[in-house]
Design a protein around this nucleic acid. Structure first.
Lengths: 127, 127
DNA sequence: ATTTCATGCAACCTTAAAGTTGCACTTCCG
DNA sequence: CGGAAGTGCAACTTTAAGGTTGCATGAAAT
């Protein structure tokens, strides 16, 4: 091991910086849910506002209905979609709260980066 | 099969809507890269502006250096981080471009959803 | 010149994700 | 009532992600 100063500093920073408000694990879960082409497609379809059934969401797809069901389950587990039973079919619709939160997290990361650039510039000018 | 109108409409909409500017596959790749707790942590550490070595990024972690190397490789493959050789060590830093693009995509999805809500409200009031 | 530090490379293990198939169970419709 | 439509459940297969270990290599420090 080489417990240099920079390494320790980086670790502590990661633990204390208020970069991410929500649990990092939950946030990674949302990203993981969006990180599959099929699921991302489902989200894009559903963000048009419709409440669609599994059969409808499976149409124009080359995977089976069961596969779509599994993907919807993954999205529901992280709160990206919600489902409601309507007769013999189950309708799915988007729940944008988690997506908004994920977007804000990416925004914070970007701002953090820009702040770091600003400090670097200030340091350079102060020399 | 039941080629109902809504199903077909949903499919066509997914193919034609300008919801996502970049390739949906590439976007899913970025989300997948961020969808791992360890990688998300790396991104958070690096967004502080530093250019850190693998050894530094491995410090205060319960996984091996090789695992960190692999994760950095995944992040680099989607363009989230960049590396530069410095003597006998390799320094990694964030490249916020892809993250910004992912953030914008989430923003578009959210706006799309709100537009859909607006249309629904207008339809309800017109009745 | 040697030793040490930071990595790179490759083989290997384990587990979970993605997908399929087959069958049972409601719900709607004629 | 009987059949078709829409799902749910469970078992199974395949592949790749995440992780480890061991050894080789290039640069640095003594």
């Amino acid at each position: 091991m080489s417990p240099r100063k920079p390494a320790a500093a980086a670790g502590e920073r990661a633990a204390t910086l208020p970069v991410l408000t929500r649990s990092s694990a939950a946030l990674a879960g949302v990203f993981a849910a969006l990180g599959d082409p099929t699921r991302l497609r489902l989200v894009v379809v559903l963000c048009a506002g419709g409440a669609l059934s599994i059969a409808q969401l499976t149409a124009n797809t080359d995977i089976s209905r069961q596969a779509v069901t599994k993907h919807l389950r993954v999205l529901a587990d992280v709160g990206v979609v919600r489902d409601m039973k309507a007769g013999r079919e189950r309708l799915w619709q988007l729940d944008p709260a988690q997506i908004d939160e994920a977007k804000r997290s990416l925004d914070v990361i970007g701002r953090q980066w820009e702040m770091a650039l600003g400090r670097l510039k200030a340091f350079a000018e102060a020399t």
